[in-house]
Design a protein around this nucleic acid. Structure first.
Lengths: 118, 118
DNA sequence: CAGAATCCATCGTGATACTG
DNA sequence: CAGTATCACGATGGATTCTG
């Protein structure tokens, strides 16, 4: 049986490493989140939420937790009131930018072929 | 929701374009299928099914139809008995190899970081 | 040989309301 | 501020059975 989560894939003898990438980066909003973090270096939760105004806090939280679990995002909690949590890219997350750019480039050429009026 | 400024549009397109790629290439078995087709140029349905022995014919059929609808795979039916159907990559599908290789490379480095003993 | 039909389990995503 | 709790829903993925 084929594993479903990125974590499970790590323990699965896979012959296709590209599938690992789609599992880690394939979340609906993960490219956008990683892109925002790459531009601003460090963002608080509220700042991220404002930048990505199309997704609810609930969804943003989950995507961030997954990215953190996969080692792409660093989460720093300051124990104070009101709470303050800062998110930034790890080295692995920064390395992912290269792939994301390659994927974005192909996605654009694909869209141009299928949707020339954009 | 679409962004308002030109800069925001550029960023939106960048991150959004990566999501297009995950939509087209992100199917559970699509990287494997495209890889098999890239290696053998032309494959019949049964040959593909034997190479990708982990998925049922039903699933393989659907993935192939999606790839065909997305313009990555060419499907040629020979009207004869017994039936013969050949699959091969279109030019778009061949172009995708570059991205798939980039994704596979990152996926491997990701796996190495999380699972150094392999 | 190359599928189609049917049905089902799971997962990702999202809306809403609430909180230390 | 930075989340959590709950519920719901549609899209994939898969198992099984059947066919020109």
């Amino acid at each position: 049986m084929r594993p479903q989560t990125a974590k499970a894939v790590r323990e699965w003898r896979t012959s296709c490493a590209a599938e690992i990438t789609t599992m880690v980066l394939g979340g609906a909003w993960k490219p956008s989140i990683l892109h925002a973090l790459a531009e601003h270096d460090v963002l608080r939760f509220g700042e991220l939420s404002r930048q990505l105004s199309d997704l609810t806090d609930r969804v943003l939280t989950r995507q961030l937790r997954e990215l953190e679990a996969d080692g792409l995002v660093r989460r720093v909690v300051y124990p104070q009131v009101p709470p303050k949590v800062e998110y930034s890219l790890t080295e692995l997350g920064e390395n992912a930018q290269e792939v994301l750019n390659a994927m974005a480039a192909w996605g654009r050429s694909y869209a141009a072929e299928h949707d020339p009026d954009r």
